[in-house]
């Protein structure tokens, strides 16, 4: 006869953890994602407005670029505002990437070895966030080398510091580069269409109206930024801007 009798105490339900939760907590990382995401979106909208001046001609565009460099003069002398701005944006960018990767790792761990399968196709924008983000990162590096720093390979041989308009036109006259820019803008749209919707949730918007507005806004922002920016390489290629 099998004996199943045990003398050990009856196990009790495991108590909640007594150790602190992961640090920094995921909800903080999510808030960081959302705040930096909004900052980056803000930059993109601002940048888009500037970029579209390219249609007003070289004069206007370069003037605008110059004005940017000296924003808040004389309160903030020389290019100091620009540098403050760059540091802030860079920090946000790094924080965004840091949070994204650590959240991603936590998510993988929490899910365990059996990945979610059979997700509907419409989820590909969420699933590809890390990938679209990584491509954006590559794009930004290329873009800075191309139009801000002027290092060759990325930049054209005609790069002239100060002639933003000329650099841009020269760069976009290379079909491959124009195509790369245009495609990246599509991926940015994908990243943002989901990203802005995430922001709505991360800021804790529970009102139905707010959520609906947020969802629509996510689409609009994504389309505006992508279409607006894409117009430029297209225009250069088409010869509308030269």
């Amino acid at each position: 006869m099998s004996n199943l009798i045990s003398r050990s105490p009856v196990p009790a339900a495991a108590p909640p953890a007594t150790t602190p939760p992961p640090s920094p907590p995921s909800w903080v990382l999510k808030v960081v994602m959302a705040v930096t995401g909004v900052m980056l979106v803000g930059f993109l909208l601002f940048h888009l407005a500037g970029n579209l001046k390219v249609f007003l001609g070289a004069e206007e565009f370069n003037h605008y670029a110059e004005w940017l460099r000296h924003l808040f003069n004389p309160l903030m002398p020389g290019e100091s505002f620009l540098w403050v701005f760059r540091v802030v944006m860079l920090t946000a960018f790094v924080a965004h990437i840091y949070s994204a990767t650590s959240l991603h790792l936590r998510a993988r761990r929490a899910r365990g070895p059996h990945r979610r399968r059979a997700m509907p196709a419409k989820r590909w924008s969420v699933r590809s966030m890390l990938m679209t983000g990584a491509i954006i990162l590559c794009f930004v590096i290329f873009h800075l080398l191309d139009l801000t720093i002027g290092r060759s390979a990325a930049a054209t041989s005609e790069f002239t510091a100060g002639d933003a308009y000329g650099n841009l036109v020269a760069s976009f006259q290379r079909p491959a580069v124009a195509l790369f820019y245009a495609l990246t803008m599509l991926l940015i749209a994908v990243h943002l269409s989901h990203g802005v919707w995430s922001v709505v949730n991360d800021f804790g918007a529970t009102g139905n109206r707010t959520r609906q507005v947020g969802l629509v806004l996510a689409g609009i922002i994504a389309i505006v930024i992508a279409v607006g920016n894409m117009l430029i390489p297209i225009a250069v290629q088409a010869g509308w801007v030269a």
Binding site: L4, I5, S6, S8, P9, P11
Partner: peptide, 13 residues
Amino acid sequence: VVRDLVTGEIRAV
């Protein structure tokens, strides 16, 4: 007397 439904152990409380 209870039976642990996961391990099958029988215990008294």
